Simulated scan of single mutants.
Amino acid sequence: MFNKVIVSEDFDSINIAVVQALEALCIPQIQYAKYCDDTYLKIKKAQAENDPFELLITDLSYKADHRESTLNSGEELIAAVKKIQPNIKTIIYSIEDKSYRIKSLFDTLGIDGYILKGRNSIPELQKAIQSIYTSDEKILSSELSHVLKDKSLLEIETYDIELLKLLSEGLIQEEIAIQFKNSGIVPNGSSSIEKRIGKLKIYFKANNNVHLVAMAKDLGLV
């Protein structure tokens, strides 16, 4: 089992519950922090002292307060930590359930597990920790098991996401074309954008643009 684990979570009640779950697994060294910056500094210090943390468990979202922070999300925290300790195991423990965002965390940050917070999530978190310790398998909450298998999420490009984002902001095709031209995004002709929107509607089986945007939001694309 892991010997040294750090938990990053801004709510005391959740921090306590996660720490108790780790103690039940007989993990000898457990630390926690309420801010991403503090978590990062603890990990950096442990690394410098040749006594690194083996596992980071972090939330995705942190409530802003009076304190200025350099790292403001679990995503930013993991990205920063991976630069100084690429081999650290990482689990995200969050209420965020948007499929595309979750998949992108596995693809871009190489996280090892994603557990959805809920009434019975602590036992699932414990199982995830045990599985990640013994294997390289990527672990997901049972209700999110489809995320890494959803082929529709594999074929969405950055261009599509930007297009959907502008549609969600209420821009019409001509306005999107101007935005794309100003940003150097191609293709940026109105007809090309119209065709792309048509393909997206077919792809997601959306009845119209409003339905398309709603589906994109459900997936966490925008």
Rank of each mutant, 00 (worst) to 15 (best):
E162T: 04
L71R: 08
I91N: 13
K205Y: 00
A79S: 14
L77E: 14
N208C: 02
I197Q: 06
Q173N: 08
T108E: 14
A64S: 14
S142F: 02
K127A: 15
I91P: 07
P52F: 09
T90K: 13
E143K: 14
P52T: 15
F204G: 01
I115G: 04
L164S: 02
D97A: 14
Y32T: 06
K205E: 14
Y62I: 15
A46P: 01
F106Y: 11
N188F: 03
Q31F: 06
S192C: 01
E23L: 11
L71F: 13
N188R: 01
G184V: 08
E75V: 10
L219C: 09
K195P: 00
Y203W: 11
Y114C: 08
L221M: 15
K103F: 08
N72Q: 14
D112W: 07
R101G: 09
A216R: 04
R67P: 00
L167Q: 05
E49S: 12
L22F: 00
L71P: 07
Y133I: 03
S94N: 12
V7D: 06
L22T: 07
K117V: 02
S104V: 13
E157L: 04
R196L: 02
Q29G: 01
G170I: 08
I176M: 02
P86L: 10
Y35I: 10
K138P: 03
I91E: 12
G198M: 09
G198Y: 06
I88W: 13
P28K: 15
I102F: 02
E76W: 10
L105G: 02
A177N: 05
Q47G: 05
K63D: 15
G170Q: 05
D107L: 05
L166P: 00
V210C: 00
V222F: 01
L41D: 11
I193K: 02
R101F: 12
I27Q: 13
S121D: 10
M215T: 04
T134Y: 12
A177L: 00
F2R: 08
I102E: 06
T108Q: 13
E124I: 13
S190V: 12
L55E: 01
V19F: 00
F11P: 01
I30C: 05
K217V: 04
D150R: 14
S191V: 15
K103C: 04
S152R: 14
K165M: 12
Q31Y: 08
L55T: 06
D38K: 09
S121K: 04
V18N: 03
K45Q: 09
